[in-house]
Design a binder for these strands. Structure first.
Length: 547
DNA sequence: TGGGCTTGCGCC
DNA sequence: AAAGGGCGCAAGCCCA
C-alpha cells in the first residue's frame, strides 16, 4: 500500500492507494506523528514531496518509517533518464517538481533542529498527480525493474540522510581541542594566530625579509617570493615544493597549519558541534552523478588529522567500513570484464592487475586505473593506460565508449538508469570558425567526454553505495528492539565508506551486517555475476584509529 | 558594506 | 613532469 501525504493549506491530507495504484480513500490528518505511528506497522510506502521536509519531525517524535518514495528526487531521475525519455513526465515543461531541494535550516546553538523555512511555493504541487505521472513513466519504460530499483534506492538514501542528521556524528570537543592544541598551540584570543602558526610565520617573514607579509594573500605571497628571487606562477603547495629556498619549508608548514585552523579549527568546532554531535545537512542526489553532497561544516572533507575527535560514546564503538577499490570493481562488473573481475577476486584488485602482468607495480596499477576512469592523456597515467587496455579490453572499452558518446553530445547512463545531462555536440571544422575557436570547441568536447567517461563509473558506484546503505539500514533495524538511541545506527557516509555507532557488544554483529549488505548491493546491481566487493572494516573507539 | 568571483586545498 | 572526474568551504580579491 502507498500513503501519499500532502500539505493542503495548513492541514495534512493522506491518500491511500493499493500497490496497483487504485484509490482507497482520502482523509485529513490532525496529528501527523500519531497518524504515521498508527499506520507504520503495516509498512506502507510513504509518498511525499521531500523527505527532508516530512521526516525530521517524525524522527523528533520518535517515529521511523521503513519505506518512502521521495517525489522530488525521483522526478529528477525520471526527468533526465534515457530510459524514460518518452514518458509524459519527461516531455512536460519544467515545473515545481524541477525546483532544487528546499533549504534545511542549519542546526542552531539551542539545539533546535529541522526548522524548515515555511516558504510558500508560487504554484502548489500536487503529489498525487505527480506520483501517478511517475508510476506511468516507470511502467512505460523498456526496463522498469532497473529504474524502479534506482528510485527505491534513492528514496531509501533520503531516509538514511535524515536519520544520520538526526543521530549526529558523535564528536568529542575536548579531544578536538587537544588535537588542535597539539598541532597549533593553545586556542588564541580572538584575532590572534595560535603560537605554532605564528612561530613558522615569523621564520617565513624573516627568511623572505618581508616583515609584514600576509601569507594568506596569494598576491602578496607571490610578490614576496619574487623579491627573494623565486618566480612562481601560483602559490599552490605542489608548485612551491619545486622551489629551493630556506623560506619554502616553513611556508609549506604554515599553509598546512593555517588550513587546519581555518577549515576545522576552534571556530568550526563552535559553529558545527552542538551537544557532542556534528550534524551536517546531507543532500542526496546533490551531485549530478548521483553522489550525495552536504552543506554545513564540510562534512565530506573531514581531514584525517581531526578524525580522532569522532569518538564513540562510553560503552559504544564505531564500526568503520570502506569498500576497497570500489570504482574499478564497479567498472569491471559493468563491463562484465572477466579478467578484471578475476583480478579483484582475491582481495586486492591492484595486486591482481600486477599479477596478471599488465603492469609492474601496485602503484602503477592504481595510477593506470585512475587514468582510465578520469581520462588522463598525458604523464605516467596516460602512458600506462594502453597497457591496461590490452589486458582488460572490455573494461577500458566501456569508459572509452562513454567518453566518445559525451564528445558527440550524447547522454550516458549508469547501471540502474541515471543519465548524464545533455551535452553539446562538437561541430567540427565548420566554416567561418577560426583555428582558436575550433580548438576551444574541441577541448570543450573532450572535457565533456572526460565527464561522461567518469559519470558512468562514479554514478554506478553511487548506486552501489545507496543499495549498500539501504541494506545496512534494513538489517540494523532488525537488531533494534529498544529504539534508535539504544541500537546500532549509521552516523556517517563518505561515498564508499560508512560509520556505524553501536553498543560495543554488537560490534561484531554490525561487522557482519556491513559485509552481508555489500554482497547484497552487488547482487542488486549485477545479479549473479561473480563480482566481489570486499570491505576494510575496523571496530574502533575513535574514527582516527580506522586506517 | 556586500555580493560574486578566484584561489587553494580538504575529501572520495 | 601533478596531468585526468566529482564536490564544499574560507579567505582574499574586485567592483559596485
Amino acid at each position: 500500500m502507498f500513503i501519499v501525504l500532502a500539505r493542503v493549506d495548513s492541514r495534512v491530507m493522506a491518500a491511500r492507494l493499493t500497490d496497483a495504484g487504485g484509490a482507497l480513500g482520502v482523509e485529513y490528518v490532525a496529528d501527523l506523528a500519531a497518524f504515521v505511528a498508527k499506520e507504520e506497522p503495516a509498512h506502507p510506502r510513504w509518498v511525499w514531496d521531500d523527505t527532508s521536509t516530512w521526516y525530521p519531525e517524525l524522527l523528533a517524535a520518535g517515529i521511523r518509517v521503513d519505506r518512502c518514495f521521495d517525489l522530488r528526487l525521483c522526478h529528477a531521475i525520471l526527468r533526465s533518464s534515457v530510459l524514460t525519455a518518452d514518458s509524459a513526465l519527461a516531455r512536460a515543461p519544467q515545473g515545481v517538481w524541477d525546483a532544487p531541494a528546499p533549504h534545511t535550516a542549519p542546526a542552531e546553538p539551542d539545539g533546535a533542529l529541522f526548522d524548515v523555512e515555511p516558504e510558500q511555493p508560487a504554484v502548489v504541487a500536487d503529489p498525487l498527480a505527480e506520483f501517478t505521472l511517475q508510476r506511468a513513466a516507470v511502467a512505460g519504460c523498456a526496463e522498469p525493474g532497473r529504474i524502479q530499483r534506482l528510485l527505491a534506492a534513492e528514496s531509501a538514501g533520503a531516509l538514511v540522510a535524515a536519520e544520520m542528521r538526526f543521530a549526529g556524528l558523535p564528536w568529542d570537543v575536548a579531544a578536538h581541542d587537544r588535537i588542535l592544541t597539539g598541532i597549533l598551540g593553545p586556542r588564541p584570543r580572538e584575532g590572534e594566530r595560535p603560537a605554532k602558526l605564528q612561530e613558522v610565520l615569523d621564520v617565513v617573514r624573516q627568511r623572505l625579509d618581508v616583515p609584514d607579509l600576509n601569507p594568506d594573500s596569494p598576491v602578496e605571497l607571490l610578490r614576496g617570493l619574487g623579491l627573494a628571487g623565486l618566480q612562481a606562477t601560483s602559490t599552490r603547495s605542489w608548485e612551491l615544493k619545486q622551489l629551493k629556498h630556506p623560506a619554502i619549508a616553513p611556508l609549506l608548514e604554515y599553509k598546512k597549519l593555517a588550513r587546519l585552523l581555518s577549515a576545522n579549527g576552534w571556530h568550526w568546532l563552535d559553529t558545527w558541534v552542538v551537544d557532542g554531535r556534528f550534524r551536517p545537512d546531507y543532500v542526496p542526489g546533490g551531485v549530478v552523478t548521483g553522489r550525495w553532497a552536504t552543506s554545513g561544516g564540510g562534512a565530506l572533507q573531514l581531514p584525517r588529522q581531526i578524525r580522532g575527535a569522532v569518538v564513540a560514546d562510553p560503552g559504544w564503538k564505531l564500526v568503520v567500513a570502506d569498500a576497497s577499490q570500489l570504482e574499478p570493481r564497479i567498472l569491471a562488473a559493468m563491463a562484465a570484464d572477466r579478467g578484471m573481475v578475476q583480478a579483484g577476486a582475491a582481495g586486492d584488485l591492484y595486486a591482481g592487475i600486477v599479477a596478471s602482468g599488465a603492469v609492474e607495480t601496485r602503484d602503477q596499477a592504481k595510477i593506470a586505473m585512475l587514468g582510465a576512469m578520469y581520462g588522463a592523456t598525458t604523464g605516467e597515467s596516460g602512458r600506462l593506460m594502453p597497457r591496461l587496455a590490452k589486458a582488460y579490453p572490455r573494461a577500458i572499452q566501456l569508459v572509452e565508449d562513454a567518453a566518445r558518446a559525451g564528445e558527440r553530445g550524447e547522454r550516458v547512463t549508469t547501471r540502474l538508469g541515471r543519465s548524464s545531462p545533455p551535452g553539446q555536440r562538437f561541430e567540427g571544422w565548420s566554416d567561418g570558425r577560426s583555428d582558436a575557436e575550433t580548438s576551444r570547441a574541441r577541448e570543450r568536447s573532450r572535457s565533456w567526454g572526460r565527464f561522461t567517461r567518469n559519470f558512468v563509473v562514479q554514478g554506478t558506484a553511487a548506486e552501489w553505495a545507496l543499495c549498500w546503505m539501504a541494506s545496512i539500514r534494513r538489517r540494523l533495524r532488525e537488531l533494534d528492539g529498544r529504539g534508535f538511541e539504544h541500537a546500532p545506527h549509521l552516523v556517517f557516509f563518505l561515498h564508499d565508506e560508512v560509520v556505524v555507532h553501536t553498543p560495543a557488544e554488537l560490534a561484531d554483529t554490525v561487522r557482519q551486517v556491513l559485509v552481508d549488505s555489500a554482497a547484497e548491493a552487488g547482487r542488486l546491481l549485477f545479479g549473479e555475476l561473480p563480482v566481489t566487493f570486499p570491505l576494510t572494516v575496523a571496530s574502533v573507539d575513535d574514527y582516527g584509529q580506522a586506517k
